[in-house]
Computed example of a mutant assay.
Amino acid sequence: MAKRYIILDTETTGTGEADRVIQLGFMVLGEKEIEVQNELFSSEVPIGFGAMEVHGITPSMLEGKPKCKESGAYKRLQELNTNENYLIIHNAPFDITMLEKEGFKTQMRVIDTLRVAKHLLPDEEAHRLQYFRYKMELYKEEQKEADALNIVVKAHDAIGDVLVLKLFLSKLKEIVLAQFPSENPVDKMVSLTATPILIKSFNFGKYKGKTLKEVATSDAAYLRWMLSGMENLDEDMRYSINTVLGS
């Protein structure tokens, strides 16, 4: 069977341990056709107001909807879950962790476009999907694509973000080809996804603008506190702190 590329995004009740998936959107890119899956789910976990503010999904929109595992979209994702296929997500660890709570264990090769972008474009001021939507002028192309696929484009909506991610993926592929002309761009993106990023300086907090090496010398206790005290610490930052501390 020909390999397929599954571009995916979720929306959730929040970002905590107890939170669950309430929207699953993905596109399946085959040799010729594009399949679109987009579904809302009910959840016993209430939607946090912070999450509602981001994605606009309200409790009334989930009334009568199936649980995630019982939905057609989830079952289709399970059908596609083989090691020939590629799963493409912006900030993959978050969505994969959320799907794991629903019993989904990916067998696919993963491309995390967030980490790939950080490798390829280290000097960008941000690496969020919406940042690149405007920086790379993807918004100028998205309506034509949306009309062809019968998709409504909304920021922070799972299927809307998937459409933007599809356009962003094409741009990343061009950058990979330019930077690594002798390598297969898809395989290179899988490789970059698996390669941690060594962050050199802080772009937040009280040490914003300082290098991790400087802080390791002047206030190593702060870095050790970050490792033990910050639950949602970015895995690349964790890797970088451990590196500068010599762990």
Rank of each mutant, 00 (worst) to 15 (best):
V36A: 04
V36W: 00
Q37S: 07
Q37A: 03
N38M: 01
L40T: 04
F41M: 05
S43E: 01
P46F: 03
I47L: 00
F49R: 09
F49P: 01
F49T: 11
A51M: 10
E53N: 12
E53C: 02
H55N: 14
G56T: 14
I57A: 07
T58D: 02
T58K: 11
T58L: 09
M61A: 14
G64Q: 01
K65S: 02
K65W: 08
P66Y: 09
K67A: 08
K67H: 04
C68D: 01
A73G: 03
K75W: 05
K75Y: 11
K75N: 14
L77I: 06
Q78P: 00
E79L: 03
E79F: 04
E79M: 01
E79C: 01
N81D: 13
N81C: 10
T82E: 06
T82K: 11
N85T: 10
Y86F: 15
I88T: 05
I88N: 05
I89W: 10
I89Y: 11
I89G: 13
I89M: 10
H90P: 07
N91R: 12
N91P: 11
A92Q: 02
A92C: 05
P93I: 14
F94W: 06
T97C: 09
M98T: 04
L99Y: 05
L99G: 01
E100A: 12
K101Y: 00
E102I: 06
E102N: 07
G103A: 08
K105W: 13
Q107I: 06
Q107K: 15
Q107N: 15
V110F: 07
T113L: 06
L114T: 04
L114P: 05
R115C: 07
A117I: 10
K118E: 04
L120F: 12
L121A: 03
E124N: 13
E124A: 15
E124V: 07
E125R: 15
L129N: 13
L129W: 13
Q130Y: 14
Y131K: 11
E137G: 01
E137A: 08
E137N: 12
E137R: 10
E137Y: 07
L138D: 08
L138P: 03
K140R: 14
K140N: 03
K140I: 02
E141H: 08
E142L: 10
Q143H: 14
Q143L: 09
K144G: 11
K144Q: 09
D147H: 06
A148D: 13
A148Y: 14
L149P: 02
N150K: 09
V152D: 13
V152S: 13
V153R: 15
V153C: 09
K154S: 15
K154I: 13
K154V: 14
A155N: 00
D157R: 06
